[in-house]
C-alpha cells in the first residue's frame, strides 16, 4: 500500500487543503438548500442572507402550484427505473453469454458490441430524433428510454465478473438437467450480486440526471423530466431563485439518499471499474 508521507509536519497542510476543498464542495449545495427556504425578499436582500430567519416551506407548495413538478418527478422516476431494470436484465445475460458460451463469430460480435462504447451520444441524437419523429415516439416514455436500454459497458463489466466463476459449477448443474435459464438465474446471478449492485446504482443515477436526450425528445410540459422541467421553470420564473432552488432540492434528494445509503459501494465501484 502506497502510504508515502508527503513531508514532515504535513498533517496540518493536508487538513487545511482537504477542508478547503470540502468546504468549496459543500457550501454551494448548502446555499442551495438555504435559498430554497428563503422568502422572496431575502433572496435579494442587500445584506446577503446565508440562512433564512424562518425557513419557508411554502416555497415547495408554490413550486407545485406553478409547474407540474409532481409529474416531472414521476417521469424521471419512470425513466430511471425502466432503464435500470433493463440494464439489470440484459447486461448480465449478455455478459454471461460472452463469458461462458462458445459460438461462431463470438469474437466479431463481442468486438462490435464493445465498439459502441466509442460512439458518443451526440452522434446518435439527430438520427434517433428523426427516427422517433417518424414513428411517433417523441414525447413518449418509450422515446425517453429506448436509446439507453442496454449498455456495452455494463455487458463488459458483467462478462469480466462472470468469466472467473468456475465452469464446473455450470457443468454440474447441466448434468443434473437444469435448463440454461435456470442455471443463469440460480447460479450465475446470485454470484454476480456485488457487480449488479454497482451497475444498478450508476445506471439509476445517470438516468435520473440525464439532460441532453430528455431535452431533445420531449416538448410537451407533461413529458418533461426533473432536470429539464427545472431548467424551463427557471427560464420562466427567473426572478424567483428560491423556487428554482426548491425544485433543485427535490431533484437532489433521491441521489443524495442513494449516496448516503450506498456510499461504500459507489466509491469502490468507481475505483474498481473506472465507471463514468
Amino acid at each position: 500500500m502506497g502510504r508515502e508521507r508527503l513531508f514532515p509536519g504535513d498533517r496540518v497542510v493536508a487538513y487545511v487543503f482537504v477542508l478547503l476543498l470540502c468546504a468549496l464542495t459543500v457550501l454551494p449545495l448548502l446555499y442551495m438548500v438555504s435559498l430554497a427556504l428563503q422568502s422572496d425578499a431575502e433572496v435579494y436582500a442587500g445584506d446577503p442572507v446565508l440562512w433564512p430567519s424562518s425557513p419557508r416551506f411554502d416555497n415547495f407548495t408554490a413550486l407545485f402550484e406553478r409547474a407540474p413538478f409532481g409529474r416531472f418527478f414521476v417521469n424521471s422516476l419512470v425513466v430511471a427505473v425502466v432503464v435500470t431494470a433493463a440494464h439489470l436484465i440484459f447486461d448480465p445475460l449478455v455478459g454471461y453469454v460472452f463469458a461462458k458460451f462458445e459460438f461462431p463469430f463470438k469474437r466479431t460480435i463481442f468486438i462490435s458490441v464493445l465498439s459502441t462504447l466509442m460512439i458518443p451520444f451526440f452522434v446518435r441524437m439527430v438520427p434517433i430524433y428523426t427516427m422517433f419523429s417518424q414513428i411517433g415516439w417523441l414525447d413518449t416514455y418509450q422515446g425517453l428510454v429506448a436509446p439507453f436500454l442496454i449498455d456495452a459497458f455494463g455487458i463488459f463489466l458483467m462478462r469480466q465478473f462472470i468469466a472467473p466463476l468456475p465452469d464446473e459449477l455450470i457443468e454440474a448443474a447441466r448434468v443434473d438437467g437444469a435448463s440454461e435459464l435456470r442455471i443463469y438465474a440460480r447460479i450465475i446471478l446470485p454470484q454476480a450480486k456485488p457487480a449488479l449492485a454497482v451497475l444498478g446504482l450508476f445506471t439509476f443515477v445517470y438516468q435520473w440526471n440525464n439532460f441532453l436526450w430528455p431535452l431533445i425528445v420531449t416538448s410537451r410540459t407533461e413529458m418533461r423530466t426533473m432536470p429539464i422541467g427545472l431548467t424551463l421553470f427557471n427560464e420562466e420564473y427567473f426572478t424567483q431563485w428560491n423556487l428554482t432552488a426548491a425544485g433543485a432540492v427535490l431533484l437532489f434528494v433521491p441521489t443524495a439518499l442513494i449516496f448516503a445509503l450506498t456510499q461504500r459501494y459507489l466509491v469502490r465501484g468507481i475505483a474498481l471499474t473506472g465507471l463514468k
Binding site: 464542495t25 459543500v26 454551494p28 449545495l29 446555499y31 442551495m32 443515477v205 435520473w208 440526471n209 439532460f211 426533473m226 432536470p227 429539464i228 427545472l230 431548467t231 427557471n234 428554482t244 432552488a245 433543485a248 431533484l251 437532489f252 441521489t255 443524495a256 442513494i258 449516496f259 456510499q263 459507489l266 466509491v267 468507481i270
Partner: peptide, 14 residues
C-alpha cells in the same frame, strides 16, 4: 464525490 452524482441542471443553475 457528491457533485459528481448531482444533476448538471442543479450544478449549472446553482
Amino acid at each position: 464525490l457528491v457533485p459528481y452524482l448531482t444533476s448538471v441542471a442543479i450544478v449549472g443553475l446553482l
